[in-house]
Every structure is written in structure tokens, then in C-alpha cells.
Design a protein around this nucleic acid. Structure first.
Length: 188
DNA sequence: ACCGCGATGCACT
DNA sequence: GTGCATCGCGGTG
């Protein structure tokens, strides 16, 4: 079942865990989402925290669109924009379990192991060929496809990765037991 | 298993 | 000029 745009028209703290297990494709290439992080307007680690700029404009809505930015000058990172009354909220897609287009992913990534194809936000953008051209595009139109989970999903919450501010907030959500995440969840 | 570092773009909290 | 919502490599236990 295709996720509609209004799936995203609510708090990122509801949307982020609900996205674990969904299927994300870009031009038919992709897989099952196994790891995401939530970023909200009051979050010092969020690009939206300091207000709207040209770079982060698509993070301010409308919901159901992509926010793509360059990270560390090298990688691209893909966010799915949520929205509560004009606030900047988005889900960073951090890892996929590859399911469609594995051979093309291997070519784009230059590695063979399935586990190395989409196990990180920069990696999955390279595997799915997501770039600035995708910034602001609607998620329910080509080249994007987004499908709801078919089965019940066991989601684990953990602290976010790679940030220096508000690093303690447990807003990273993982599919329990998945070997395709960027890093395993801390031991409980 | 850990840790350090270089690559590289671009907005500055 | 500095600091990242990163990655992969090469060093050391």
C-alpha cells in the first residue's frame, strides 16, 4: 500500500518509528527501511533549529516531500519531511535492507557485500543515486515509491549517531535484529 | 575490537 | 576560518 502524503502531516515523533519496515524505492532501486532518526524544530542538532535558509527550505514543508543535503562535503543524506503547523521536522533515512536493484547498487557503491550497500545515510544515497536533484520532490510521485509495512514490526529506540548536540535523545529507531543497520543498537 | 585521520562542500547555532 | 545528521582505510590491541 502506497503511503500518502498526509501520512507525513503529523509529528515526526509519530512518523519516524512508523516508517521502520516501510519500503523505499528511487527509480525502482531500494528496499526496506531498517533505521531512521527524528529531527524536530526545537532540536539543537536539527538543521531547522536556527530557522529557514535556502539550504534547509524544503525541511519547512510541505510534508511528504524529500529534504536532501550534502554532508561533510562528500555524502548526500535523504530526509522525509513531516510537518506540524509550519514547524521544520524530518526523518533522516539511515539504512535500508537492500531488496531491489542490488546489482546496480553494487556498481554505484563499488562494494559487493549486501550489508555494505545501504548501511548508512551517505551509503544509501549513493546506492539509490539520491542527490540535490531530489531535494523538494514529492514522495508519492516518481522517482520515489514508498510502501507501508506488510507485517507487524518490532522497533527499537536508541540515541542518535554522529551528532554533538542533544546526543542523548533516543530518537533513532531500528528494526530489531536487522543486520543491515549502520551500527547495532546499544545493549539494553 | 577499538581509534585516528583524510577526503571534500558549504553554511555559519 | 571552523565545524559538521559521514565513510573507509590503516594503525593498534
Amino acid at each position: 500500500m502506497q503511503l500518502e502524503r498526509d501520512f507525513f502531516a503529523r509529528s515526526v515523533h509519530e512518523v519516524a518509528p512508523a516508517l521502520v519496515g516501510a519500503t523505499l524505492l528511487v527509480d525502482g532501486i531500494g528496499g526496506r527501511i531498517v533505521e531512521v532518526e527524528a529531527y524536530d524544530q526545537e532540536d539543537p542538532a536539527s538543521h531547522g533549529f536556527a530557522g529557514r535558509t535556502a539550504r534547509n527550505a524544503s525541511m519547512f514543508g510541505p510534508p511528504g516531500h524529500a529534504y536532501v543535503y550534502r554532508s561533510y562535503g562528500i555524502h548526500w543524506c535523504l530526509n522525509l519531511v513531516c510537518d506540524v503547523e509550519g514547524r521544520a521536522e524530518a526523518v533522516l533515512v539511515r539504512a535500508l535492507e537492500p531488496r531491489a536493484g542490488l546489482e546496480l547498487m553494487r556498481q554505484r557503491r563499488g562494494v559487493d557485500a549486501d550489508r555494505a550497500l545501504c548501511s548508512g545515510p551517505g551509503k544509501l544515497c549513493q546506492a539509490l543515486a539520491v542527490t540535490r536533484e531530489h531535494d523538494g520532490l514529492a514522495l508519492d510521485e516518481p522517482p520515489f515509491e514508498l510502501y507501508a509495512t506488510g507485517e507487524p514490526v518490532d522497533v527499537v529506540a536508541a540515541p542518535r549517531i554522529g551528532i554533538t548536540r542533544a546526543a542523548e535523545r533516543p530518537w533513532r529507531y531500528l528494526l530489531r535484529g536487522s543486520r543491515y543497520v549502520s551500527r547495532p543498537a546499544p545493549r539494553a
